[in-house]
Design a protein around this nucleic acid. Structure first.
Lengths: 202, 202
DNA sequence: ATTCGCCTTGGTCATTTGACCAATGTAGCA
DNA sequence: TGCTACATTGGTCAAATGACCAAGGCGAAT
């Protein structure tokens, strides 16, 4: 029998290993299905089905379906933002941070799984205090990294600029999903303009 | 008996009038409940309850629950956007259009019924082609009005600027719902900056 | 070999859901 | 008065849902 560390190995050796496997599969399936069907349309049964797991396991590994969705979305969003944050951190050149952000923007069409997961989670968070708090932490982290990058670029008032850029980013993703004509390339000069160091007359 | 034109008059005279009344009440209740509970959590029964109407009426006046929600959200959004568009149209002064937009932004906290209705509808539209099309039309109309205002203000490239402003607007509403600290006043100078006529080096 | 702890199974349960409809009500017109 | 065109009622229906659980499985430690 092969090494049990293979991800998603149905024949994992110990019970604990198999359990972790099922958990992981459920979380992954939840991430997919939130994007595909929408937060409220993810049911225990389709979820278990997608994960290749019996539906009874959902409530063994998680307190509730909502708790599962919460954890799945939070972890997925954290992964995405960590990646973007890393791209920002490596930028030394002044405008490079904004360019990195713009490059990220091109990756999200508003209809891909990552975009949808974010939007779905934002909306769900408005009615789920626990998720709300988790997302607030993600916001703080990402905007902090963005503000730091802008500050290194000499922006006079990096915090509000970072907040505006982050909000515009999500707004653009949302609008791109509804209007595919909205190409990022035509907007790029304007987005750069937002972050320009000469800044607004404060 | 009083005049039957009173909105929501349960004792309206003719059957047709009563029918229109029930229809109106259902649409109004749908608008409220989409914001309160979320698009997918609006059921025929709570909807009829809120409207003060028996649940059987829902499928008499509308083809399906989704059709009702679609019409309710579309009409409500149209009303809001018509108002905003009017505010833009009356602006003659160059920067006045942006100021009008900023004033609108202050009205939407991201947690008020109007904000929530928009966000819910956007998300629902990603999985409902008919609603998608309706929203696309609203987008075209509002961005057109905004672009016209920017052009009157001498903006060199009004169309992309309007698209970016509209997306940023929605993004800010979305983020404000998740982060109440995000006051529009601190961001106002930056938003103005987006639309500044000297514009980006295109 | 037996026990122990965790994972898994397959099922049940009460609720809620969207849709549908036959029967009834009712106001205005002929 | 009776007819017509609606709107309304109160109910049924099958399907889907989140949660829960008793019984069984199974590797690992003793």
């Amino acid at each position: 029998m092969t090494k049990a560390n293979d991800q998603f190995n149905a024949a994992a050796r110990t019970a604990a290993e198999r359990g972790r496997d099922a958990r992981t599969r459920l979380l992954a399936a939840a991430g997919e299905l939130i994007a595909e069907l929408g937060w409220n349309a993810v049911s225990t049964r389709v979820l278990a089905d997608r994960a290749g797991v019996r539906s009874g396991l959902v409530h063994y590994h998680f307190d509730s379906l909502q708790a599962l969705l919460r954890q799945a979305s939070t972890e997925a969003m954290t992964r995405v933002l960590d990646q973007s944050t890393a791209a920002l951190s490596t930028a030394d050149d002044p405008a490079e941070a904004v360019e990195a952000t713009l490059a990220e923007l091109d990756r999200y069409t508003g209809t891909d799984p990552e975009s949808l997961l974010f939007i779905e989670a934002y909306l769900a968070a408005l009615r789920d205090p626990e998720l709300h708090q988790a997302i607030a932490r993600l916001f703080t982290g990402f905007r902090g990294a963005l503000a730091a990058a802008l500050e290194r670029a000499g922006h006079p008032d990096p915090d509000p600029a970072a907040a505006l850029l982050a909000a515009s980013f999500d707004g653009l993703v949302l609008h791109k999903g509804l209007d595919p004509e909205l190409s990022a390339s035509r907007l790029a000069p304007l987005v750069r303009h937002i972050a320009e160091p000469e800044g607004p007359a404060k």
